[in-house]
Design a protein around this nucleic acid. Structure first.
Lengths: 112, 112
DNA sequence: CGGATACTTCACCACATGGAGAACAATGAA
DNA sequence: TTCATTGTTCTCCATGTGGTGAAGTATCCG
């Protein structure tokens, strides 16, 4: 395993913006070019490029430029690794907060 | 179930700071006063209060003041609800990224 | 070549954030 | 009452963030 420890500062900062979360969800459907990703968002390309840079710096997205087109794709490893942070936190809580098991169960049920 | 949908902007912004994550981890060990929480951090109380406010606005921490002492505690529901966002994202990826199952398995194994 | 396409960089601006210090409650103890 | 403790509020400042528009670069098309 490579050292895939996520930079939590960078990852959470990247996720703390609806535009950037929307980009991640758009990329779930497959790779996309910068212009395609930018189209739904009401801002200029320079501003959008900054969002992409934040995502890429956080390791959530990777991109490759061929010719004049940059194609972006998800880099799921960082997301998975970040999800583990939540699991670790929860491990500490569980058993300490009596009503937490019920709460988890309720949310899991709602999920179905 | 109450409407416990977390404000992802606020939650992720709150988590995108090492001081604030440290406060959450300190609170895992139990309730604590503002001064106790602030002690390990090299900054004045006013600055620290802002961090607490961010955590409380995000719904990650709740606090109660009795006398002149404010006691803070975790509010785990928001964390649990946010963890679900990751689960939802992963649900979309799974099956789409061929190598993802292996990746998840490797990380889960490392966790043990 | 000439022009359209797809970024990319640049200079700039408004506002939010994270910190400082000083002054101000409000409570508890002597 | 006097004083220390525990926040809290205030004003200020440096920096970061998210946006703009204009100009630049590199590629593809005809």
């Amino acid at each position: 395993m490579e050292n895939n420890e996520p930079n939590l500062d960078a990852v959470f900062h990247a996720l703390a913006d609806p535009t950037r979360r929307a980009v991640l969800q758009a990329l779930v459907k497959g790779e996309a070019t910068v212009s395609d990703l930018a189209a739904p968002h009401d801002m200029g390309l320079p501003a959008f490029m900054k969002h992409l840079s934040v995502l890429e710096a956080a390791g959530l997205v990777k991109s490759d430029k061929v010719g004049r087109v940059r194609t972006c794709a998800l880099d799921p490893a960082t997301m998975i690794a970040t999800e583990r942070w939540f699991e670790e936190q929860r491990a500490f809580w569980q058993g300490r907060y009596a009503q937490l098991d019920d709460l988890v169960a309720a949310l899991q049920g709602e999920k179905k």
